[in-house]
Design a protein around this nucleic acid. Sequence first.
DNA 1: ATAAAAACATACTAATTAGTATGTTTTTGG
DNA 2: CCAAAAACATACTAATTAGTATGTTTTTAT
Lengths: 197, 197
Amino acid sequence: MSSKKAAATRLNILQKAFELVYQNGYRTTSVDEIIATTQVTKGAFFYHFKNKDEMGLAMINEVMQPGMRKSLIEALPSNGNPTEEIYNMMESLLLKDPFFIIKYGCPAINMVEEMASYNEAFNKALSQLVIQWEEAITTTLEKGKTIGKINPDTNPKEVAQYIISGYGGIRNLGKIHGKPSYINYLSQFKKYLNTLK
Amino acid sequence: MSSKKAAATRLNILQKAFELVYQNGYRTTSVDEIIATTQVTKGAFFYHFKNKDEMGLAMINEVMQPGMRKSLIEALPSNGNPTEEIYNMMESLLLKDPFFIIKYGCPAINMVEEMASYNEAFNKALSQLVIQWEEAITTTLEKGKTIGKINPDTNPKEVAQYIISGYGGIRNLGKIHGKPSYINYLSQFKKYLNTLK
DNA sequence: ATAAAAACATACTAATTAGTATGTTTTTGG
DNA sequence: CCAAAAACATACTAATTAGTATGTTTTTAT
């Protein structure tokens, strides 16, 4: 029973918060900063969220989740050559997706780094995001096995986790070494993918 | 021309700060917190460091650098089988080194994640740490090439960066998935290393 | 149209932050 | 031993923090 305008205010807060958190980190982004850039007053903020962490959780679930879902999962068609598809997903994520700013890394990875050990609820929400990606990659690999394009003794879940951790790692290293490290990474990543054939 | 006691006070601050930062992050560890656990007064703290960031930089260079150096670089003997040595280094880092707490990840990686884009001086100091590790791995691989244990068209520097980013990634993912992800990672890491032979 | 609830606005508070001003105590070289 | 410098201690400050108390304005259902 919330008005369209109220829902818009809420979403606006979450989206602006997401951008600020992406660039500054969660704990170092203040509520005052969020309401300043959102042009929303403190009363409105704390009307929609009972505290900062509740907002943070909503931000993960309602903005980060769907956004990452689009970038990560929908980039995986899963019908042709699995290794090629996975490579293309990674390449487009690292080099083509205009959302990401190299020096700021990946918002989801950053959030895991900062908040996983600090807040159990955040940990769960972020874990679900990772698991979704994991499942998408796992599915791609399993289909690959049935059509004989992936080695039968490949462990899809294990491989999926390895790929995700590689992604997180290069997003982090890219913060200090910049784009060239992305290129190097992709080159070795391709070699690894070939071990799965 | 500083007394032994003064030097001890300074080092004590840096070491306690390192532990706190490892578990809470740099920006969310306050000077008050550091001096409380160090049993040092504010006067002493700001006598030794002109501000928090100068302390942070000293912490990276004087505590994190040598500590990581010991864990990372000296774990690489570099005379026998290079792929085996690199695998062992990674395994001992992830599973045997008693310093690391899985849910808190790796202090150096955390610091890169949090501070690389926030402070240029921190970025440089952390970058040097990473480059040292990179060089150690590169050397191992180059020696491996001369004795014919590493494929001649392997690019050692590129591989070293890939390995380091993988390490950072799994330290991060381990925060939400725990130790099993370390095991999975090592299994796939071994497969990757075999592509270098 | 109107009463009630929802949505927002303003002005506060108590705690925490990095850092400073102004001391007192230790240490050190001569 | 003793003056000067080094090393520390205490008490502050101004800014920022998350959150609240108490309003006013908008929406909504009737």
